[in-house]
Simulated assay, not measured.
Amino acid sequence: MDLNGVSAVVSGGASGLGEATARALAGAGAKVVVADLNEDKGKALADELGGVFVKTDVSDEAQVQAAVQAAVDTGAPLRVVVSSAGIGWASRTVGRDGTPHDLSTFEKVVQVNLIGTFNLMRIGAAAIGKTEPADADGLRGVVINTASVAALEGQTGQVAYSASKGGIVGMTLPAARDLAAIGVRVNTICPGIIDTPIYGEGEAAEAFKAKLAAPVPFPKRMGKASEFAHLVKALIENDYMNGETVRFDGGIRFQPK
């Protein structure tokens, strides 16, 4: 699908993987709605890219609807929805002191990562379905969701995070089958260890990142956000990719710890 002249919504678009994706889509000619909670970064990026910023909690139905409507209101047909908003948490199911995992924290991670992804997908796809087909196949648009290799090989303390990301993987194929009726493709990316601002800066941060990258077979480094964005763009542009979960991890396989 050609990205030039379409509109797109990118959740978590103000930083990290979302920011790189917003830049890649805008560079290909798309009008991007940056949907994020960070107003300062989000507005600055949207202004830079000639897009639109909408403050968005992805677990909130009204806020997601507003972000999708902003894309529709650009006048360019909404063809792309990318979910990259998410949060992490580390806690054992039962801690070393015998304390059970906090339930409210588990619920929060699932609410943002899994339910938030579904919320944007369902509302975004409904809006895409109202557009005219973009090609002879009847394609109207593409949804790209972001999971994690932790969905497949969750480590110690990742029970909440892995459950939320595993849910995204689990709904990929059923969603693709559901949305085929309105000409919408759905694919999910499972990133591994990606270098984003979440790890901070300085000597200690670099040492920590080097440790994280050590198990990666090749290339022997962390992935780049720009490489993630390149994959998003490729999945959008390749019209035969549908219902797939794609690992993006340099060949890493997570060990228990």
Rank of each mutant, 00 (worst) to 15 (best):
V112S: 05
L114M: 13
G86L: 08
A76Q: 15
Q63F: 00
E48G: 11
G42A: 04
D73L: 07
W89A: 15
F118M: 13
V72A: 07
S91P: 10
G88F: 10
S15A: 14
N38P: 01
A85K: 05
D102F: 12
S91Q: 14
S104A: 14
V68Y: 03
G51I: 07
L37M: 10
S59H: 04
K41F: 09
G27F: 00
A76I: 10
L17A: 01
D60E: 13
G29W: 03
V82R: 02
K43W: 00
T99N: 14
A90P: 15
E19A: 13
G50K: 15
E19D: 12
A14M: 01
D60K: 08
A24R: 12
N113Y: 00
A26P: 12
A62W: 08
A90T: 15
V34I: 14
E61A: 10
G42H: 07
A20K: 04
V64W: 02
V58W: 02
V112M: 09
G27T: 05
R23S: 07
L45I: 06
I115K: 13
V109E: 09
L45N: 08
R79M: 01
E39C: 03
S15D: 08
L25A: 07
F118W: 15
A66C: 04
L25Q: 09
A22N: 00
G75L: 10
V82Q: 03
H101Y: 15
G51Y: 12
G18R: 01
Q63C: 11
S83E: 11
D102T: 02
G75A: 11
